[in-house]
């Protein structure tokens, strides 16, 4: 796989300021290399990877610890969160299906009360996920420090958890966007 850090001319560091990524990407665009075929999509993909902390961690670990694997087990509070997310998503999906099938304003209005409650539930979950993600991404400098002495276990464990959190966050956000449409 091509190296996103190299494509954007950035140091292979886990701690990257989003503004720095943005500037690097823009400068390359301005370079007039805009018509050089493939390179534009490589740059766009590289930016997307590096801007997302979870993808950036995965990409960085792939370079500093190519033989390592993300930790599979998850902590107790993640397990607890998972147990609560499932039922909320199921309820919302049922609601969205009903809403989609409704063809009249009245039939949709009948669902409004439930939709408002669902929106609140999702927002509460998202507000829980964000600090959990933050607690892990805040340790990026520490992971980088440990990696210098060859220890990537903590980073791999964080990646395992972050992947779950990212997926749940995406699922919640999709539902929230869909609910905005109700």
């Amino acid at each position: 796989m091509t190296n996103p850090f190299a494509i954007l001319g950035l140091p292979e560091s886990l701690v990257l300021d989003p503004v720095v990524i943005e500037t690097a990407w823009r400068d390359l665009h301005r370079d007039g290399r805009d018509h050089a075929g493939d390179t534009a999509s490589d740059r766009n993909v590289a930016r997307a990877i590096l801007t997302d902390p979870v993808d950036r961690l995965a990409c960085w670990l792939g370079r500093v610890d190519p033989d390592g694997e993300p930790e599979r087990g998850i902590s107790a509070n993640l397990m607890d969160l998972f147990a609560r997310i499932g039922p909320v998503l199921t309820t919302i999906d049922a609601l969205l299906t009903k809403h989609r099938k409704a063809t009249t304003a009245l039939a949709r209005a009948v669902l409004a009360k439930e939709a408002v409650a669902a929106q609140l539930a999702i927002q509460t979950l998202l507000q829980e996920i964000q600090p959990m993600k933050g607690a892990l991404t805040d340790r990026f400098a520490e992971f980088e420090e440990r990696a210098r002495s060859g220890d990537c276990r903590e980073a791999q464990r964080a990646l395992g958890e972050l992947k779950f959190l990212k997926r749940w966050e995406e699922q919640c956000r999709e539902r929230l966007l869909a609910l905005l449409g109700t």
Partner: peptide, 24 residues
Amino acid sequence: ANASLDEATQTLAAVLVEAAFEGS
């Protein structure tokens, strides 16, 4: 007939949505 009922219930629908947001 559906169209007239749809039209006749517009206010009802609006009131219902309003009520849903009041409760939140």
